[in-house]
Computed example of a mutant assay.
Amino acid sequence: MTRRVTSSTPQKRPLPPVGWAILVGLLVLIGGGVWYYNRLNINQWRHVSKLGIRLPMKFQIHGIDISKHNGRIDWNNLRAMRFEDIRLQFVYVKATEGTSLMDKDFKTSWQKADEVGLYRGAYHFYIPWKAPEPQFENFKKMVKLKRGDLPPVLDFEIGTNVYTREQVVANVATWLRLAENYYGVRPIIYTNADFYRRYIKGNLDKYPLWIADYSGWTLDRYDDARIHFWQHSKSGYVNGIRGTVDYNVFLGEVEDLKQLCVK
C-alpha cells in the first residue's frame, strides 16, 4: 500500500507594525533625498572627467581666468578643446596689480585670446591700502579695449586696516568710476561672499558682480545681487595649460554676453 505524502505551503506571516514603520520611513527618506538633491541641483551640476571638476550645465558659456602663474599657454589647443559638447568661450587675463606691477604675460595672452576667437577681458588686482587713482593709471597704461571686449574687472578680495570700511568703499568706487569714464563701459567687481556682504552690498549695487564661491550648489545667498559671472572652481584642467586653472561660468545667454561687451 502506497502512502500519500501531502505537502502544505507555509503561510507568510504579515509584516508587523514596526516593519511597516521602517519601510515607510525608508521610502520617505529616499524620496526626501531625491527631492533635496533635485532642489540643490537646479543648476544641473555634472562631473566632467576631462576637466576633473563638476560644471553647472544649466549654463552654456564657460571660461577661465589666467595670469603669469599659469605659465606658457598653447592657445590653439585650449581653443580646440571640447567637453560635453561645450568649449571655452571667454578668458579674463590679469593685467596689473597695485600701482606699478604689470603682468609680464598679459600682452601675449591678450593678443592670443583675440586671435583664437575667445571673448577676452582684463582685470586689475586691487590693493586697498594704496590710492585708487595711481592703481587705475597703472591699469590704463596696460589695457586698451576694443569693440567686443569684455568690461574691465576690479579684483577686490583682500582687506586692510589702513582705512576705515567707508574709506575702502569710497576708494573702490573711485577706481570703478575712473574705469567707466575712460572705457565707456561699466566695470565688473570680482569678489567673494565675505567682501560682498562687508563692502559691496548696499554701497556698490549698481555694478555687475563676478562672484568667487566654491562652497555651494547655488548663489541664492546673494539676494538680488547683479551677478554676471560665477567662479565656481579653482582646480580645473584645460588643454594647453599645465596645472589647474580657475573655472567660471556666465549666468546668461550669448546675447546677454554680447550686450555686456564694449560697444
Rank of each mutant, 00 (worst) to 15 (best):
L40F: 02
G31N: 03
R82S: 05
V48S: 15
G98P: 01
I66N: 09
W35H: 09
A95E: 02
L40M: 13
G71T: 10
V28D: 00
W75K: 05
I42T: 14
D65Q: 09
R82P: 07
Y92G: 13
N43P: 02
N76G: 10
W75E: 09
N76S: 15
E97D: 07
V34D: 08
L40D: 04
Y37C: 08
G98I: 06
R87T: 14
G33C: 07
G33K: 01
L51H: 13
V48T: 11
E84Q: 13
S67R: 09
P56C: 01
W35I: 12
I66F: 12
R87Y: 06
G25Y: 00
L88A: 04
I53V: 15
K94M: 11
A95D: 01
R87Q: 15
N38F: 04
L51R: 15
F90E: 02
G52M: 05
R39C: 00
R82Y: 07
I42S: 14
H47N: 12
Y36D: 09
L26Q: 02
G98K: 03
G71K: 10
I66L: 13
G32W: 02
F83G: 02
V91T: 11
T96L: 01
R72S: 13
R54V: 11
E97H: 01
L51I: 10
S67D: 08
L26T: 01
I42H: 05
L29E: 00
V34F: 05
F59M: 01
G25A: 13
L40Q: 12
V93H: 05
N70D: 14
K94G: 08
H69R: 15
P56N: 04
H62W: 09
E84W: 06
F83M: 05
W45L: 01
Q89H: 10
I64M: 08
F59H: 10
H62D: 06
E84R: 05
Q44P: 06
I42R: 11
R46S: 13
G32L: 05
H69W: 12
F59I: 02
N76E: 11
L29Y: 05
L40A: 09
I42N: 08
P56M: 02
E84V: 03
I66W: 05
I30T: 11
H62F: 14
I86C: 11
G25Q: 01
Q44L: 14
L51P: 10
L26F: 07
G31T: 00
W75M: 04
D85T: 07
D74T: 01
